[in-house]
């Protein structure tokens, strides 16, 4: 092919060789998504999806249906009951109870609701604010870009935990405070990523074509740029869920997060800290939940990244 600077296709890795179809001109053709999906399903991280669904999403949505215990008030008489398979355990409290006799499983389930709520809200805020700023900075450049880039760098270099402690010390812990703190810390990652993508999309020939056609800048942002950075956004959002959950848990753990007695996973780990050698289940199960969910979300995000990889898109050869 007479294209200059065409990448050598034969250096492609296995993935590309197997996944891509080439059209008559030898250029990669993207298959319809359902075909790609069905050809790739052997590598879909089912375990991760399963974990996220059954440890995080379903419990959060169906908490009131799944469990009848009260997550906030326990039965003092049943305090420190071990999980059911241990001596003294009972199936009423499958994963045991804490110092105040509250059912661990129930608190985990309601904790999932908190994690999901916090991450959904913060990521929505972060993604909307971050990608708007990123789009504007990347697209318009000039002083807008300089200002936003400076903001991004500043926010990324702030010590989050310290910042959180200061704010909480000043106005006290609450749900709103923690959402605000986390949103403030994650918008910058969205902004940085989206800005970078926008910078490269802005230089593409199809954006130049749209300008020549007389399309307004806003319309170009919405119809040409946004759809082409959407993949990045989806991947980043998935990866950020894990980050937010971890951050929320850490803040809650040090007491700067969700106020007690709300059953955040981080709060639960903190609560069982002094009992860790005797009543290990109090900290262990929430810790396990955090570990599994964060790990799964990372795997899922990585997979999504590959799945939606720009290589799969028609990108020309730049």
């Amino acid at each position: 092919m007479s294209v200059r600077n065409q990448p050598a296709r034969f250096e492609s890795d296995t993935d590309e060789a197997l996944e891509l179809n080439f059209d008559i001109q030898g250029h990669p053709v993207r298959r319809p998504w359902w075909k790609v999906w069905s050809k790739r399903n052997n590598r879909v991280p089912w375990v991760s999806i399963f974990v996220v669904l059954f440890v995080l999403v379903l419990p959060a949505l169906l908490a009131d249906v799944i469990t009848t215990h009260d997550p906030l008030r326990g039965v003092l008489a049943d305090r420190l009951t071990p999980p059911f398979w241990m001596e003294g355990g009972t199936t009423t409290y499958p994963l045991g109870t804490d110092k105040q006799g509250r059912d661990i499983l129930t608190r985990l389930i309601y904790g999932a609701r908190i994690s999901l709520t916090v991450s959904t809200i913060t990521i929505l805020i972060g993604a909307v604010v971050g990608s708007t700023l990123g789009l504007l900075a990347g697209y318009f450049g000039g002083w807008v870009d300089r200002f936003v880039s400076w903001l991004i760098d500043t926010f990324l270099s702030l010590p989050h935990v310290l910042l959180a402690l200061v704010i909480v010390a000043a106005i006290g812990p609450s749900f709103v405070t923690i959402v605000a703190i986390i949103a403030v810390t994650i918008w910058a990652s969205f902004a940085r990523q989206v800005r970078g993508e926008t910078l490269s999309v802005r230089e593409t020939e199809y954006v130049a074509r749209a300008h020549v056609a007389g399309t307004t800048s806003w319309r170009i942002l919405l119809r040409h740029v946004l759809p082409n950075v959407a993949n990045t956004l989806i991947v980043l959002a998935t990866l950020q869920v894990g980050v937010v959950i971890l951050e929320e848990s850490s803040l809650s753990f040090i007491g700067a997060g969700i106020p007690r007695p709300n059953p955040s996973w981080g709060v639960m780990v903190a609560d069982g800290r002094d009992q860790i050698l005797i009543s290990w289940w109090i900290s262990f199960f929430p810790g396990l939940c955090i570990l599994l969910v964060v790990l799964s979300l990372n795997l899922l995000g990585d997979w999504l990244r590959d799945f939606l990889d720009p290589k799969m898109r028609q990108r020309g050869r730049s």
């Binding site: 050598a8 296709r9 034969f10 250096e11 492609s12 296995t14 060789a17 197997l18």
Partner: peptide, 16 residues
Amino acid sequence: SMLALSLVRLTPEPAG
């Protein structure tokens, strides 16, 4: 290109 790569035995792995 596939012909050229075959001569030096550098065809893409594992498809080729």
